[in-house]
């Protein structure tokens, strides 16, 4: 696969580490009610859809950017690639 890195252009997926569902960006507030349950959901419940999915990729063999890649897990078509720090607060 090729990932269109927002700063570096097309890079081979072998340069990246995969970390799955981008919901990991949204860590619960530790002071919130039922924080333990929320952290368990956060840590263990991930989406794994057959279709469009937002997921985290880390450019470890490159510039060490964490990316949010919107990818169709069936066709492997990559629809969008953003720097994780830019997407923060924009996606849910």
């Amino acid at each position: 696969m090729l990932i269109d890195h927002p700063l570096l252009g097309l890079r081979d997926s072998s340069e990246f580490i995969y970390r799955g569902d981008a919901k990991l960006l949204y860590r619960p507030n530790w002071k919130s009610k039922n924080s333990k349950t929320k952290f368990i959901d956060y840590g263990y419940l991930r989406k794994n859809p057959a279709g469009v999915h937002k997921e985290l990729w880390y450019h470890e063999q490159g510039d060490r950017s964490w990316l949010v890649v919107t990818r169709n897990t069936v066709t492997h078509e990559i629809l969008k690639v953003e720097l994780a720090r830019d997407t923060k607060g924009k996606l849910k």
Partner: peptide
């Protein structure tokens, strides 16, 4: 060593940007 750096970068970019 490499894994801790990876996770620190995750915190830096994804949790506390």
């Amino acid at each position: 060593a490499p894994l801790v750096l990876r996770n620190l970068e995750f915190v830096r970019q994804c949790l506390l940007p």
